[in-house]
Simulated scan of single mutants.
Amino acid sequence: MRTWPGLAAIGAGLIHLGSAAGTAPAVLVPLALLGAAEVLWGVGALARPEPPFPRAAAVAVAVAVVLGSVGLLLPAAAARHGGMVDLGVPGGAFGGAGALDLVLAVLLAIRLVPGRPEAAEPRPVRFLIAAGLAAAVVAIVTTESLAATSVGGPMRMH
């Protein structure tokens, strides 16, 4: 479980960075800042035995999940009421980043529980299997989410 938070943060950050391309500046700047912060935090989490700043990260991830949910639901709600809201980010990208952020939030919450048992003795084979599984899951979610964005969509050949 040591690698999951870092990998989930990096995956969500890459999706946010990829989603920012081609959007209006009001959407681009927050998505790019969020994506960069997630990638940097994820790298820091992979480099340490414990994730850095777990309380601040939990608050930031909760804000990202709420804003992502609003971004996912806002265009559909506006369309039902005869309005038009286009954030320029496909729902698939918001959904993938939200799923990874939600996993990250749960893992941070588990780490913040007082009195949690100490980690078991490290087992290299078990660690490699868990890290490989985490990397595969994050890679699948990130790839599919980025494919839905303008960055990963169909490219025009010149």
Rank of each mutant, 00 (worst) to 15 (best):
residue 3 T to V: 15
residue 3 T to H: 12
residue 8 A to Q: 05
residue 9 A to R: 07
residue 16 H to T: 10
residue 16 H to E: 15
residue 19 S to N: 12
residue 20 A to R: 07
residue 24 A to F: 10
residue 25 P to Q: 04
residue 25 P to A: 08
residue 26 A to I: 13
residue 27 V to G: 01
residue 29 V to R: 06
residue 30 P to V: 12
residue 34 L to K: 06
residue 36 A to F: 12
residue 39 V to L: 03
residue 40 L to C: 08
residue 40 L to H: 08
residue 46 L to W: 09
residue 47 A to R: 15
residue 49 P to W: 04
residue 49 P to T: 12
residue 56 A to T: 07
residue 57 A to S: 13
residue 58 A to P: 08
residue 61 V to N: 00
residue 63 V to Q: 03
residue 65 V to G: 00
residue 67 L to P: 00
residue 68 G to Q: 08
residue 69 S to H: 00
residue 70 V to Y: 01
residue 71 G to L: 04
residue 72 L to H: 06
residue 75 P to H: 07
residue 77 A to C: 04
residue 81 H to Y: 11
residue 81 H to A: 15
residue 81 H to C: 13
residue 84 M to D: 03
residue 88 G to D: 01
residue 93 A to N: 01
residue 97 A to L: 02
residue 98 G to F: 00
residue 101 D to E: 11
residue 102 L to E: 01
residue 104 L to H: 05
residue 106 V to K: 01
residue 106 V to C: 06
residue 107 L to H: 04
residue 109 A to H: 05
residue 110 I to A: 14
residue 110 I to V: 13
residue 110 I to T: 03
residue 114 P to V: 02
residue 118 E to Q: 15
residue 118 E to V: 13
residue 119 A to L: 11
residue 120 A to L: 07
residue 120 A to M: 07
residue 121 E to Q: 13
residue 122 P to G: 11
residue 124 P to A: 14
residue 125 V to S: 06
residue 127 F to L: 13
residue 129 I to W: 10
residue 129 I to N: 08
residue 131 A to M: 08
residue 131 A to H: 06
residue 134 A to Y: 01
residue 135 A to Q: 14
residue 137 V to H: 03
residue 144 E to F: 14
residue 144 E to D: 04
residue 144 E to R: 15
residue 157 M to W: 05
residue 158 H to Y: 06
residue 158 H to I: 12
